[in-house]
Amino acid sequence: MKEGSMNTLNEFDLLIYNTAVEAAMKAGELIKTQYHEFIAVETEFAHDLKLDIDRKAEKAIIDIIESHYSDHSIITEEDGIKVKSGEYCWIIDPLDGSVNYYYGLPYFCTCIACYKISPASVSRLAEGKKMGNPGEPVAGVVFSPVSSELYTAFKGKGAFRNGVRLSADTKRKLSEVIVIMSTGSTPDIINKSLCIANKFALCARKVRMFGATGLDIVNVASGTAGVFIQKGTNLWDFAASRVILEEAGGEIKYIETDAGKWDVVASNPAISGEVDEILKSCGFYED
């Protein structure tokens, strides 16, 4: 089924959707132009990198959003949080999978989401406090510039990859699916994640770690994978792909463990209960 349902959006909603698509593709194409070229590193951590291209891509996204909306808040990975008076908020990860990008692994993406979030909730996050509720999803876009795959969703209108409707797998058992995980970037989370990976390696078809949360979750939305698990991730890492997954019929749990930090579990509905039981046995929900 093609993406015809987006044609039924009203003018206001259609502009939000088109803005998200335009901004994601603009940033993705900018990122692609420097792929395999000299890549400037802004900040280097033990298990992560911040690149100059992250900031350039983010600016391109913000310029497009602000050309249409002056009262929408913005939460970004690089420049932080802009609190505005409106009820809409844009959540941006200009380059999800920066380490992959730097080392030439073709698994990275741009993630853009629009949510309804009260300015008070955005302000709490800006002050270093827990949000409590990440808000109501409106639109989500994930763009993979290497494969030219554009994943899109609007609340109540379905999820699509390059215009073709997505559907999460609802039939396979846990023993028949791929489980995707991220190990995180801190020693504590890495150790806990590897213990969880060991559990799932014994009962799933395979466990894989790819390194770009946005793409990982849309792989669950498309039925390519059955489960995604990550501890201590950021709102911008999963906000866009959450919309796509839910519109594709998948399930997602997100638990705020600290200000701006979330534990996330995405799965197909057929195995969510079994996944939960395994995670409980690993102490996943005890932080």
Rank of each mutant, 00 (worst) to 15 (best):
P137T: 03
K129R: 11
A120M: 08
C89T: 15
I217W: 05
F228E: 03
S118G: 07
C109I: 10
Y69S: 12
K231M: 15
S147N: 13
N18E: 13
S147D: 14
Y285T: 10
N198W: 11
K173E: 13
Y102P: 03
Y254C: 12
V220M: 09
E78Q: 09
G226L: 12
N162F: 12
S193Q: 05
W90A: 00
A259T: 14
V179K: 08
G211F: 04
K192L: 11
F143R: 06
W90F: 11
T186V: 13
S193W: 03
M209W: 04
E277P: 00
I271T: 09
I74A: 07
V243E: 10
L174E: 04
T233V: 07
A212K: 00
G86T: 08
Y17S: 07
A270H: 14
Y69D: 13
K280H: 13
L174G: 01
L150V: 10
V179G: 08
K157I: 01
N191W: 06
Y107F: 15
V122M: 04
E22N: 12
Y17V: 05
Y285H: 14
K192H: 10
E136Q: 11
M209C: 14
I53Y: 06
A113R: 00
D96I: 05
F284K: 09
R165G: 04
F12P: 00
A204N: 09
E274Y: 02
T183G: 05
T257M: 11
A259N: 10
M6G: 05
T43F: 03
L105S: 14
D13Y: 11
G28D: 08
N10Q: 00
M209T: 13
I39V: 13
T170K: 15
S267K: 04
T224V: 14
D48N: 15
E42I: 11
W236G: 02
S182I: 02
D52S: 12
A240V: 01
F154K: 01
F200T: 04
K32T: 00
S121I: 09
T33L: 10
E251H: 12
Y254V: 13
D79P: 00
S147T: 15
G104N: 12
I244E: 04
N191F: 07
A23K: 03
E247F: 08
A40D: 07
T233A: 07
A24D: 05
Y17P: 01
S144G: 14
K50P: 03
I39G: 07
P187T: 04
G214S: 07
K116C: 02
K130P: 02
D96C: 05
A126N: 08
K129H: 12
D258K: 14
E66I: 05
G28V: 10
P134V: 08
E58Q: 04
T233Q: 05
K2G: 15
I91Y: 00
T8D: 13
V141P: 08
P106I: 08
L202R: 15
G232Y: 00
S241H: 06
P137V: 02
T183K: 13
A126P: 00
N7S: 09
G97V: 06
Y151I: 10
A126S: 12
A259W: 08
D263F: 02
I91M: 01
